[in-house]
Amino acid sequence: MTEFSAQLDTPLIQVANLSCVFDVSKPWLNRVVERESKQFLRAVDDVSFEIRKGETLALVGESGSGKSTIAKMLVGLLEPSAGTILFDGQPMVIDSSERMMELRKRFQMIFQSPYASLNPRWKVADVIAEPMVVLGVEKDSAKIQARVGELLELVGLSAADGAKFPHEFSGGQRQRIAIARALSSNPDFVVCDEPTSALDVSVQAQILNLMRDLQDQLGLTYLFISHDLSVVRHMADRIGVLYLGALVEIADSKELFKAPQHPYTRMLLDAVPDLEMTGRQRKEVEGEIPNPINPPPGCTFHPRCPFANERCKGEVPHWTETRTGVVACHGVEEGRIPAAEMVR
């Protein structure tokens, strides 16, 4: 990544006040009969961040945190309810205009399940060639074939594998195929949505290493979505922590692990099993994630937060600059939360 450090300061992705609201109401007739009002789920609530060229930003959160919804909005699979996404200065819109089709060449996505992300009826070569063909990156069929072979070798498979069907490959190999497809239109930006959570650990290591190598080789920018902090630590330059659809902390990766600020971040770190057997005393993690349809008022984390006071229950926290990044917490702002132990 060092070669690209010169460009690090230009944001490739600028996300401002992004929100996504889903209508999760029952059908009209049920609502009338049961006298219920419409229900909405704020999957993503006023999220803003930037991703600089060549870096990896990771979004970490548990189920219901909105991390996959953000990923989908960033690649135009879902329309935001509010807010803007700028890709290299250009607005992202869901349409088939020429400008947008041109823009589509520049971003791609690697999905969670290597079993569902490849069409079982398509040959691997066709799967990989599809973005190239549809986006018009390459038109000559001999060149397409050659490029597919190159891509297969780039991800550690052999060019001859293109003639096979996806079911002939293991989970890890399929994820390699999915990566080859993502690279086929020569994108700058790749959204990786839990790319290894369906894989076994030893295969996960292969895929994570491959993704890092490809980033160095091709100068890719990653948005890395995961629930697994130890994977994120390995991949990310910066980390954003999501809770119930909102960002609670963004910090430099190393700093976040050394000195987590937000109580939720600390809780997540405490929940990671201690593999080094250092005898680190884990704090009891409290409670579970509340129902996102009726999130708690004020800071949504307050019912589980050991430091919550009256202000947290009523007032939504705003960004506070810290030594390591930004954090949305009244306690940190007021300085009433003890500094995190720097054991790790």
Partner: peptide, 26 residues
């Protein structure tokens, strides 16, 4: 809702192409 359909949408394939080339064979 499967991810291979998402992957096709992402590159801007038209609904008709997705229905006929991706979904129908399955």
């Amino acid at each position: 809702n499967k991810e291979y359909v998402q992957a096709a949408k992402l590159i801007g394939r038209k609904p008709m192409a997705i229905m006929l080339k991706h979904i129908l064979p399955n």
